[in-house]
């Protein structure tokens, strides 16, 4: 005999009511009514209507769900919306300013740094975080610190080219 998930208690704990969570998403205060078990990723995609942030594994193993939380890149699938009360969340939808694409967005297009596009929002948000951290100097360091974002299409070299371009550009400014 086999049963699915024998260890999980059957008593449903859905009685805990949804609670308002206020996040600043892409500069705007957004109040979401969510139960504690809603991940930040699902809160963005299913409750805030921002599907630009992608779900590729839901377990912190691909990087597609990368967003910036108070300026730092994090995985939105491995945190809960309720834990981010008051935080400033930047998603891919908030990266361009006043219709002007971010230099990384432009560089990604120019370098053909994506094919299917599914890992792209995570790659770009991650690269923004990387540049802000300022810890990667060499190409090898950029590759290592971007390794949290998988690309199954194999656009790796183009992605790193795009990031190096922007990095070198900002270094010269």
């Amino acid at each position: 005999m086999n049963t699915n998930f024998p260890d999980i208690p059957a008593s449903p704990k859905t009685t805990f009511s949804a609670r308002p969570v206020t996040l600043r998403i892409n500069g705007n205060p957004v109040e979401l009514n969510v139960l504690p078990w809603v991940s930040l990723l699902d809160a963005l995609r299913e409750y805030a209507g921002l599907t630009g942030t992608k779900k590729g594994c839901d377990h912190g193993q691909c990087g597609a769900c990368t967003v910036l939380c108070d300026g730092e890149r994090i995985l939105s699938c491995l945190t809960l919306a309720v834990m981010k009360e008051g935080s400033e969340i930047t998603t891919i939808e908030g990266v361009a300013q006043d219709g002007e694409l971010h230099p990384l967005q432009k560089a990604f297009i120019e370098h053909d740094a994506f094919q299917c596009g599914y890992c792209t929002p995570g790659q770009i948000c991650s690269a923004i975080g990387l540049l802000r951290e300022g810890k990667a100097e060499t190409r090898d360091e950029v590759k290592e610190l971007m390794s949290g974002n998988l690309c199954r299409c194999g656009a790796n070299t183009n992605i790193i080219d795009a990031i190096m371009d922007v990095k070198n550009l900002s270094a010269h400014e």
Binding site: G60, L75, G129, S147
Partner: peptide, 9 residues
């Protein structure tokens, strides 16, 4: 260990 994103969390 892990990745930049995970280490940030």
């Amino acid at each position: 260990g892990a990745t930049a994103q995970i280490r940030n969390m």
